[in-house]
Deep mutational scan, measured.
Amino acid sequence: EEWMVEKALMVRTGLGARQIESYRQGAWIEGVHFKRVSPSGESTLRGTTWYNYPEINKFIR
């Protein structure tokens, strides 16, 4: 699984929702560690946020 939603990321990493938000707003790079995608497939600020687990795992190492 490369891309996953927040709940799956929480299960895989043990991070809480606030921790994920903090990383997203600070250290993680949009387009690398996470992306927002609307149902139409376009990038957007209001779409579902998807997280790239392999890239996040590399960051944590």
Score class of each variant (00 low, 15 high):
E1D: 12
E1L: 07
E1Q: 09
E2L: 08
E2G: 08
E2N: 09
W3R: 00
W3M: 01
W3N: 00
W3C: 02
M4L: 11
M4K: 01
M4P: 01
V5L: 15
E6Y: 07
E6D: 06
E6T: 06
E6C: 10
E6Q: 08
K7P: 06
K7M: 09
K7R: 10
K7A: 15
K7V: 10
A8L: 12
A8I: 10
L9V: 04
L9N: 01
L9M: 04
M10Q: 08
M10W: 04
M10G: 04
V11Q: 13
V11C: 14
R12F: 08
R12E: 05
R12L: 14
R12G: 04
T13P: 01
T13Y: 03
T13M: 06
T13H: 02
T13R: 00
T13V: 05
T13N: 02
G14T: 03
G14Q: 05
L15T: 01
L15S: 01
G16M: 09
G16Y: 08
G16N: 15
G16E: 13
G16H: 11
A17T: 08
R18N: 11
Q19H: 05
Q19I: 06
Q19W: 04
Q19F: 04
Q19P: 02
E21R: 11
E21A: 12
E21N: 07
E21Q: 10
S22P: 01
S22F: 15
Y23E: 02
R24F: 05
R24K: 13
R24N: 03
Q25K: 12
G26V: 09
G26I: 08
A27C: 11
A27H: 09
A27N: 08
W28H: 00
I29G: 03
E30L: 06
E30V: 05
E30Y: 09
G31F: 05
V32P: 01
V32R: 05
H33Q: 03
H33T: 01
H33L: 02
F34V: 02
F34I: 03
F34N: 00
K35M: 10
K35Q: 06
K35P: 01
K35G: 03
R36Q: 14
R36H: 15
R36Y: 15
R36T: 15
V37E: 11
S38F: 14
S38T: 11
P39M: 12
S40W: 10
S40L: 11
S40I: 11
S40G: 12
G41H: 10
G41S: 10
E42K: 05
E42R: 03
S43F: 06
S43P: 12
S43T: 11
S43Q: 10
T44G: 14
T44A: 12
T44D: 15
L45S: 13
L45R: 05
L45P: 10
L45F: 08
G47R: 07
G47N: 11
G47Y: 14
T48W: 06
T48N: 07
T49W: 15
T49Y: 15
T49D: 05
T49N: 06
W50K: 04
W50Q: 05
W50F: 12
W50N: 03
Y51G: 00
Y51L: 01
Y51K: 00
N52V: 01
N52H: 06
Y53H: 04
Y53T: 02
Y53W: 11
P54N: 10
P54D: 11
E55A: 10
E55Q: 07
E55D: 03
E55H: 04
I56E: 01
I56P: 00
I56K: 00
N57T: 13
N57Q: 15
N57A: 15
N57V: 15
N57H: 13
K58I: 08
K58T: 07
F59N: 03
F59V: 04
F59Q: 04
I60F: 10
I60A: 03
I60Q: 04
I60W: 04
